[in-house]
């Protein structure tokens, strides 16, 4: 019996291990390539371990001779800008949908659910035309504008606020808090795990987004991280995939670091909202 349990455990770990290797292989390859000398990338000999450590020159080229740092800064501006407006709108709206009684609430929430089913590609053309008419193409605003209102966040926070005890809200009203003040003094502090989880989703999605930036941005000055990589490939590097992978590693690094730091809170936020 014990040997069977042991065998089952070995087997299941083997399966998990294979899955992990498949998932991690591209990242490992990216990191290996980023320290590989340029002449070896397309060399005849295939050896996973670089013959010589070329990390300094590759990362130096990515950092100082390319648009990648600028693209990362742009990415930070865009992601934080989107997140700030998303939280500022979704939290009060979710509270209202979850806890206030008003006519039309059911219809409004139905529309929110409907909004969940519409992908960005559907309104992309009218949005582009409107931004073009307003002369706002190739701006930070154009990059952020379609994502200011988040149906997903609204839904996530609403589910969370529905579990908040009604008596505490009543106590707050007796103490003199208005509904907005209830949101920022009571609901937001209680929703921090959900806010954390949502922030990770939002930042990852918009940091990595290629589709929308490709549509509205043409200049190097407004390039987001994936656009920065694209431009890098075409213009600066020629065949230097080592430097390109160094740029890719740099762009991935903030997200990986942020996830490692916030991992515990992220998982808790997901389990608390019942979305896992």
């Amino acid at each position: 019996m014990r040997s069977r349990a042991f065998l089952a455990s070995v087997l299941s770990h083997l399966v998990l291990l294979i899955g992990a290797v498949l998932m991690l292989a591209p990242f490992v390859w990216m990191l290996l390539t980023s320290i590989r000398p340029a002449e070896e990338v397309f060399g005849a000999v295939f050896d996973p371990i670089p013959s010589r450590f070329a990390g300094f020159e590759n990362y130096a080229q990515a950092l100082f001779a390319s648009n990648v740092p600028r693209a990362m800064l742009n990415g930070a501006v865009v992601c934080l800008g989107i997140l700030a407006v998303q939280l500022a709108t979704a939290l009060p709206a979710a509270y209202a949908l979850a806890r206030l009684r008003f006519p039309g609430r059911g219809v409004l929430f139905g529309l929110v659910l409907f909004g969940l089913t519409v992908p960005i590609q559907v309104p992309a053309l009218p949005l582009y035309l409107a931004l073009a008419k307003a002369g706002l193409l190739d701006t930070f605003f154009a990059l952020m504008f379609p994502f200011f209102l988040t149906v997903f966040g609204l839904f996530l926070f609403r589910q969370f606020f529905r579990t908040y005890p009604e008596e505490i809200l009543q106590a707050a009203r007796l103490d003199g808090m208005g509904e907005f003040e209830i949101v920022w003094r009571l609901a937001v502090p209680a929703a921090l795990p959900a806010i954390g989880a949502f922030s990770v989703f939002s930042i990852v999605a918009h940091w990595n987004d290629l589709y929308w930036p490709l549509i509205v941005v043409t200049s190097r000055e407004r390039a987001t991280p994936p656009l920065g990589i694209l431009a890098f490939r075409d213009a600066e590097t020629g065949g230097n995939y080592g430097a390109l992978m160094a740029g890719a590693a740099l762009i991935t690094a903030p997200l990986v670091l942020a996830f490692l730091v916030a991992r515990r809170g992220f998982v808790r936020g997901l389990t608390m909202t019942g979305l896992k």
Binding site: E167, A171, A172, R173, L174, P189
Partner: peptide, 29 residues
């Protein structure tokens, strides 16, 4: 509205503000 009726209420569940300290709870009103 409730706050202007000059009444205070003690709830069955106590309804304390969970993320505030006791001092914060007492100071809020």
């Amino acid at each position: 509205p409730p706050a202007e009726r000059d009444v205070a209420m003690v709830f069955q569940s106590y309804a304390l503000y969970p993320h505030m300290t006791v001092a914060g709870n007492l100071a809020t009103p």
